[in-house]
Simulated scan of single mutants.
Amino acid sequence: MVRLQTDPIDPAALLADFCRARTDAGAVVSFTGLCRVATDGQAVETLAIDAWPGFTERVMAELEAGTRARFDLIDLIAVHRWGEVGVGEAIVFVATAAVHRRDAFQAADYLMDQLKTRAPLWKREEGPDGRRWIEPRASDHADAARWEPTP
């Protein structure tokens, strides 16, 4: 399941719900991305995330399907926030469940790399020095590229 929402994300509640009565998995891996207080030495007061509802969710669903096809998963959840996010608040939550830990770890890692570089989300940090758009870095693209087959 994937979801795009403006409401705050509660990672503990999402993880508890994801794990509730789960007897089919040997591993659950979760990741929570938080809004940090500074980026590259520049203070951050808020993070504004723009999305194109409908389209963004469709792309997120495609990324979910690709993750499920690539790894031996029992279940997956990805929740991404949009709108204004305060420092310390959750931006994204991903959890994967698998029979074995390696698939759960790799699937969570893979999905985060895909969300970071392919999901149509536009991020703008706001701080005392003004506004600045945040683009995926070269290292983000390199992280995503490591999943592609080598020629």
Results as ranks from 00 to 15, higher is better:
residue 1 M to D: 12
residue 2 V to M: 04
residue 2 V to G: 01
residue 3 R to H: 11
residue 4 L to I: 13
residue 4 L to Y: 00
residue 6 T to N: 12
residue 9 I to T: 04
residue 10 D to L: 08
residue 12 A to H: 13
residue 14 L to G: 05
residue 20 R to G: 04
residue 27 A to F: 10
residue 28 V to S: 09
residue 28 V to D: 02
residue 29 V to T: 07
residue 30 S to I: 03
residue 33 G to D: 09
residue 40 D to V: 05
residue 44 V to N: 06
residue 45 E to K: 11
residue 47 L to Q: 02
residue 48 A to W: 12
residue 49 I to S: 00
residue 52 W to A: 12
residue 53 P to V: 05
residue 55 F to E: 13
residue 59 V to A: 05
residue 60 M to T: 03
residue 60 M to V: 02
residue 62 E to D: 15
residue 62 E to M: 06
residue 64 E to L: 08
residue 64 E to F: 03
residue 65 A to Q: 15
residue 66 G to M: 07
residue 66 G to W: 03
residue 67 T to V: 10
residue 68 R to G: 08
residue 73 L to K: 01
residue 74 I to T: 09
residue 76 L to Q: 03
residue 80 H to E: 02
residue 83 G to V: 09
residue 83 G to I: 09
residue 85 V to L: 07
residue 89 E to S: 11
residue 89 E to I: 06
residue 95 A to L: 10
residue 95 A to I: 08
residue 95 A to Y: 03
residue 96 T to Y: 01
residue 96 T to W: 03
residue 97 A to D: 00
residue 100 H to L: 09
residue 101 R to T: 02
residue 101 R to F: 11
residue 105 F to C: 08
residue 108 A to H: 00
residue 110 Y to T: 01
residue 111 L to A: 01
residue 114 Q to Y: 03
residue 115 L to D: 00
residue 115 L to P: 02
residue 115 L to H: 04
residue 117 T to E: 04
residue 117 T to C: 14
residue 119 A to G: 07
residue 120 P to F: 05
residue 120 P to Y: 05
residue 123 K to D: 03
residue 124 R to M: 10
residue 125 E to L: 05
residue 126 E to H: 14
residue 126 E to A: 13
residue 126 E to G: 13
residue 127 G to S: 11
residue 129 D to I: 04
residue 132 R to A: 08
residue 133 W to A: 13
residue 134 I to R: 08
residue 136 P to T: 04
residue 136 P to N: 07
residue 137 R to A: 15
residue 138 A to W: 09
residue 139 S to Q: 14
residue 140 D to L: 06
residue 142 A to I: 05
residue 142 A to S: 12
residue 142 A to P: 01
residue 146 R to T: 08
residue 147 W to L: 07
residue 147 W to G: 06
residue 149 P to Y: 05
residue 150 T to Q: 15
